[in-house]
Design a protein around this nucleic acid. Structure first.
Length: 878
RNA sequence: GAGCCUUUAGCUCAGUUGGUUUAGAGCACUUGCUUGACAGGCAAGGGGUCGGCGGUUCAAAUCCGCCAAGGCUCACCA
């Protein structure tokens, strides 16, 4: 009669329900009287595509937001994308290069047109992909960091910070990315250990035949040397104090200076000093007033100032100069050496320390409230340990280089006066002109005379405002949205961007709204493969998430991702995870098919076994809801899912449904049917945040639903008190059933052969509440009391009650004795461990009374069991 | 070099302020059952001296110290 497929088919339902949710505007949120629950998405790169990390991260957010919505809160999940200046610009530059267009040959405006074309073409694909996994974002609120309102917010913030004296411009040693041709922040540099060489090179001493030997890993920078430095106390070099050395190949005379920065033990104890291309050398240069030779061009080739090898790449030059130095007789030796080389996080080329003019944000004062409010738990990190990492960075914070030599981004609102380094800061050129006239007193200045700074701001300089700017709280601090939705409730993001983003959002929150940006931060781990390798395109170990959803269903994939992603821990992905999710979908589906197949006969009474089982399930359900809420509160989402999984699969399907399902081709009573349906409904609701599609599909079929009804706006079951005693009693019944099943298995007795069960209850502790359940699930005909031991019966003890299953000839005495002896051995061992405690005088004198009481109960139970087992063995042996 | 974290069954992890059976779950594995919801399901089973050593305590997977292995973050040794 039921033609529903035995397998759940996600393809048939997922798009349908997503569209239904959209059509009914269930994701939409506007301020009202309810409590808000707000999440802002960590904006993915606008031209990015969905990867496994996004699935995990956004599934977490969707779970939290769907639950909040069902709890009656006004849930608002704001989606959006990030312009990702350096990454996107690199993609556009590459694309232009493929078309034979050099970025340097076109104007800024032309480039921006290309970049916008690219963005329009590829942008937002990732948001469409998020819909496939069920993300319930309020799409009407979708933001992009280069939208006008967000752009203006960034500029406004820049001006504000400048006027507070926190932004300055200056020449500093910065991390130069010679591929993207821009400076990057300290955080954007990744250090890698690298096998390289340590070159020992001798420099001739002026007016002498003597040489001084230095050691360097970067011989190409010899051309930029302006001194040789030794430790003032290094006796080997006393003779060179005050002398000059000659740079090989270019014959430049440089002073030999002394400074206790030098490590006497390292290399030869003599250091070549290249102030323009090394942070420490730069400091030495400033201290000792050395010349600075900038020997590199912006693209990493040698500049005119290098004198030799002009326009050749720095790494090619490294080889060339070694050959030339060898020819000139200056190489003393070359050793293998492991050192750390900084790479640009975005372009993966080695970073070149370089002196350049940049804009910086002073951080020292800004971080103070951000440190305070994380450490006093106003903002709560899950897991807690990330507070350490956070503190370490915040307490050693350095000024933030916020300028980038790129075009794709928010252009720095500094306008230079004609032929001058003097500038004014203003939100647009018209206002800049007014300020410029004020500043110079020159009323003839025109807009054309002003020149805007060419640089754009670091991408993170816009992202750090995200929780505020998506609600337009920078431009309009008193608007209804920002007042209602801010602070947001929870941020779910990877711990790899704790400094880039999380810390800076907290700083911005306190600076611009005097308030935290979010109450909780849930740090996710990385998605890795089974060998703990990061997912990457090169390794080819990253599955295509959309293919996975095709294969296993979005619910299956979500289930797989969540089942073992502990907060902050890495997820070791393999395909068995979504497979388990798909299998569970089938399980739910088939439980539904089962209930659908029941025919209801309104004339029959509810049988006793169904009544007590449903009573028990009510208590069990409430107990589990209470635990579930606790897990949510502590962000233990994997455990929360596991709890729901077990509740559905074990308690509901394997126990409850097995008990209440009618006999083959028999009808069921109306009361049982309705109660089961009601619990099914409740279970679907608690499952919904994890598996939104299948729960909607079944929920819609479970009852007649009106158009516009949906599980996603139904009420989440709330925690209620529950009867622990009933739950425990049922557990004892489960024990008895398991024991009988074991006997059947051992003796190979089919369920078709009915058995009898007798119990001997000397302590009056046997609870009969679930007898009808025992009868039903263990194929027992009759349960009766006995005062005496029963011959020819299999025997077991649950709690303090002895049970006998008469088996007649099937009993093998030796087997039975062996089994009981094993049990006796365990019980005796257990009793011994209890007695050891109770026999310890100091334990009895010092331990709390309730602990001792528990031990006494254990002792009594064990003794009763041992006595019963012993007697039974004795009987058998007669 | 500094700091932080981790170490519990084959794998991934729980284990709440030390005391609810001489340690738990999921997956994997083994066995049995299954023509009446479930290309699977059900039932059961095996598997751990809680990284090592020492200490505190009546009581330690849990607290402290040392050691070992692994990981993360930060840092200017050419």
């Amino acid at each position: 009669m039921n033609e529903t497929s035995t397998k759940y088919n996600p393809q048939k339902t997922e798009n349908k329900w997503y569209q239904y949710w959209l059509d009914n505007k269930f994701f939409k949120s506007t301020p009202d009287k309810r409590k808000p629950y707000t999440i802002v998405i960590p904006p993915p790169n606008v031209t990015g595509v969905l990867h496994m990390g996004h699935i995990m991260n956004n599934t977490i957010q969707d779970i939290l937001i769907r639950r909040a919505r069902m709890q009656g809160k006004n849930a608002c999940w704001v989606p959006g994308t990030d312009h990702a200046s350096i990454a996107t610009e690199a993609k556009v530059v590459n694309k232009l290069a493929e078309e034979g267009i050099d970025k340097n040959s076109i104007s800024r405006d032309e480039f921006m047109n290309h970049a916008w074309d690219w963005t329009d073409k590829h942008g937002g694909i990732i948001l469409e992909q998020l819909k496939k996994i069920g993300a319930s974002c309020d799409w009407d609120r979708t933001k992009f960091t280069l939208d006008n309102d967000l752009y203006e917010s960034v500029i406004k913030v820049f001006i504000d910070l400048f006027n507070k004296g926190l932004i300055y411009r200056g020449v500093r040693m910065v991390n130069w990315d010679s591929k993207a041709k821009t400076a990057v922040s300290d955080e954007e540099v990744e250090y890698k250990d690298e096998q390289s060489k340590l070159y020992y090179v001798k420099y001739k001493i002026v007016d002498s035949n003597d040489y001084i030997t230095i050691a360097t890993t970067r011989p190409e920078t010899i051309l930029g040397d302006s001194a040789v430095c030794v430790h003032p106390k290094d006796e080997r070099y006393f003779k060179f104090h005050g002398k000059k050395a000659i740079i090989p190949l270019i014959d430049r005379e440089v002073p030999i200076i002394t400074d206790d920065y030098i490590d006497i033990e390292f290399g030869t104890g003599a250091l070549k000093v290249t102030p323009a291309h090394d942070e420490n050398d730069y400091k030495l240069g400033e201290k000792h007033n050395l010349l600075s030779f900038n020997i590199f061009n912006d693209d990493g080739t040698m500049s005119k100032d290098a004198i030799l090898y002009e326009n050749k790449d720095r790494f090619e030059v490294r080889k060339l100069i070694i050959t030339d130095l060898e020819k000139a007789g200056n190489i003393v030796k070359i050793e293998d050496y492991t050192n750390r080389v900084g790479y640009s996080q975005r372009t993966q080329v080695p970073i070149e320390p370089k002196l350049s003019m940049q804009w910086f944000l002073k951080m020292e004062e800004l971080v103070k409230p951000a440190i305070e409010h994380v450490n006093n738990n106003d903002i709560n990190f899950s897991p807690k340990r990330f507070v350490n990492t956070y503190n370490h960075w915040m307490e050693n914070i350095r000024d933030w280089n916020i300028s980038r030599q790129l075009w794709w981004g928010h252009r720095i609102p500094a306008y230079y006066l004609p032929n001058s380094n003097e500038f004014v800061i203003a939100e647009n050129i018209e206002k800049a002109l007014i300020l410029a006239i004020e500043k110079t007193g020159n009323k003839n200045l025109k807009i054309e005379d002003l020149k805007q700074d060419e640089d754009v701001l670091d991408t993170w300089f816009s992202s750090w405002l995200w929780p505020i700017s998506v609600f337009d709280g920078i431009r309009y601090p008193e608007n209804e949205d920002i007042k209602y939705y801010y602070p947001t409730n929870v941020l779910a993001t990877g711990h790899d961007i704790i400094f880039f983003w999380v810390a800076r959002m907290i700083i911005a929150g306190y600076e611009f709204r005097k308030e935290l940006p979010f109450k909780d931060v849930y740090f996710t781990g990385m998605v890795r493969d089974e060998q703990r390798r990061k997912m990457s395109k090169q390794l080819g170990n990253s599955p295509d998430p959309l293919k996975l959803t095709d294969k296993f269903g979005a619910d299956g994939v979500r289930f797989g991702m969540m089942l073992c992603s502990p907060a902050g821990g890495d997820l070791l992905y393999n395909e068995s995870l979504p497979e388990q999710g798909r299998n569970f979908s089938n399980k739910i589906w088939n439980a539904f098919r089962l209930t659908q197949s029941w025919e209801v006969d309104k004339t029959i009474e509810q049988p006793e076994h169904a009544k007590v089982a449903l009573d028990w399930f009510n208590e069990k359900f409430n107990e589990q809801i209470t635990s579930l809420n606790g897990l949510y509160d502590t962000f233990k989402l994997s455990e929360a899912l596991m709890l729901v999984y077990k509740l559905f699969r074990d308690e509901f399907s394997s126990w409850l449904l097995e008990i209440v399902k009618p006999d083959y081709q028999k009808p069921t009573d109306a009361k049982t049917y309705n109660q089961v349906k009601a619990y099914f409904d409740k279970l679907l609701r608690i499952l919904h945040p994890f598996m939104p599609f299948i729960t909607e599909e079944i929920w819609q079929q479970l009852e007649e639903r009106k158009d516009g009804e949906s599980i996603m706006i139904s009420k989440m079951p709330v925690s209620q008190s529950y009867n622990t005693k009933m739950i425990n009693t049922f557990d004892l019944a489960k024990d008895i059933i398991t024991q009988i099943r074991n006997i059947r298995k051992e003796k190979n007795i089919s369920y078709k052969n009915k058995l009898n069960l007798l119990y001997k209850d000397a302590n009056n502790s046997y609870d009969k509440s679930f007898e009808t359940v025992i009868l039903r699930l263990s194929g027992i005909d009759k349960i009766s009391e006995t005062k005496e031991k029963v011959d020819g019966a299999s025997h077991f003890v649950v709690k303090k009650t002895e049970f006998f299953v008469p088996l007649g000839d099937l009993i093998d005495k030796d087997d039975e004795i062996k089994k009981l002896t094993e049990e006796l051995k365990y019980a005796t061992g257990f009793l011994n461990s209890v007695m050891k405690k109770l026999g310890n005088e100091r334990f009895v004198n010092n331990a709390p009374a309730q602990v001792i009481e528990k031990e006494n109960i254990k002792k009594a139970d064990a003794e009763a069991k041992i006595k019963a087992l012993g007697e039974q063995i004795k009987t058998l042996k007669q």
